[in-house]
Design a protein around this nucleic acid. Structure first.
Lengths: 127, 127
DNA sequence: CGGGGCACTTACAAAAAGGTGCATACTTGT
DNA sequence: ACAAGTATGCACCTTTTTGTAAGTGCCCCG
């Protein structure tokens, strides 16, 4: 029996599938991971940290993470708006599962760079 | 300077970013993970395992994984075509980093199911 | 008063991802 | 002889995702 991990995987083929669907979204893992390594952050801080994301994207993903119970948003209802974001316990545990991926990336940075260099020149050849 | 993990992260904000760009693609992590838990698999077997993917998608992702050096394809050049796929050492190590995500998913299946149930009814309300 | 920052929001593109269906060339099973 | 299976390739189209640019209301600063 190949693909099955536990009972009652509603619609998922396995736990990995479930997790992936939850964090699908270009910036979500990055947001979770960033939040994991320092208490709550204000919107602007996140904005500057995940620097390639636009406001629209960042907000959208934050909203989804919040709706999914991974992130907690606190609005201080102050006059110049002040809001911050932090992980919920669930989000924190997920972020923990992300750590190996981060380590893998830093450990294999050279290989990864080579891969991307090749993608580039493959793309270049097509023109 | 907030987001940095090591030196020389070419274009990435951190190792996680690098890893994510490598495995971006709806089926890639699943393919890697599946290959990781049993020797090489023939195309047809993968096809049946990752059951929601179409031929087109599966092939596309396999090619990318191969080009990126994560998967090794062996074509036996036989008459009814016979081909199989296996992980390279690099791919195998990446698959290892995926394990915690899978475990997280199975351990928090209930929460995840609840999340998806809510997404459903949110979607329903919009109509 | 003008400019800038805050935390968003909205309308509108553009791009990426995914799906469908048909075709190949050959073999084995019925 | 005909259907089915094998591992893809290709064209076309729809859906989903991501990005861009501008705008909002309010305040503080010089």
């Amino acid at each position: 029996m190949e693909g099955n991990c536990t009972p009652t995987l509603a619609g998922f083929t396995c736990g990995l599938d479930a997790t992936l669907r939850l964090i699908a979204g270009k910036w979500k893992p990055l947001i979770l991971y960033f939040l994991a390594q320092g208490g709550p952050y204000r919107y602007g801080e996140l904005r500057r940290a995940v620097r390639d994301a636009s406001d629209k994207m960042l907000i959208q993903q934050l909203k989804e993470l919040e709706a999914d119970g991974l992130v907690k948003r606190t609005d201080y209802k102050e006059v110049p708006p002040r809001v911050d974001y932090d992980l919920t316990p669930l989000g924190r545990s997920l972020a923990g599962a992300l750590v190996p991926l981060c380590s893998w990336g830093t450990e294999h940075l050279e290989e990864v760079n080579r891969v991307f260099a090749e993608r580039e020149n493959w793309a270049a050849k097509c023109r």
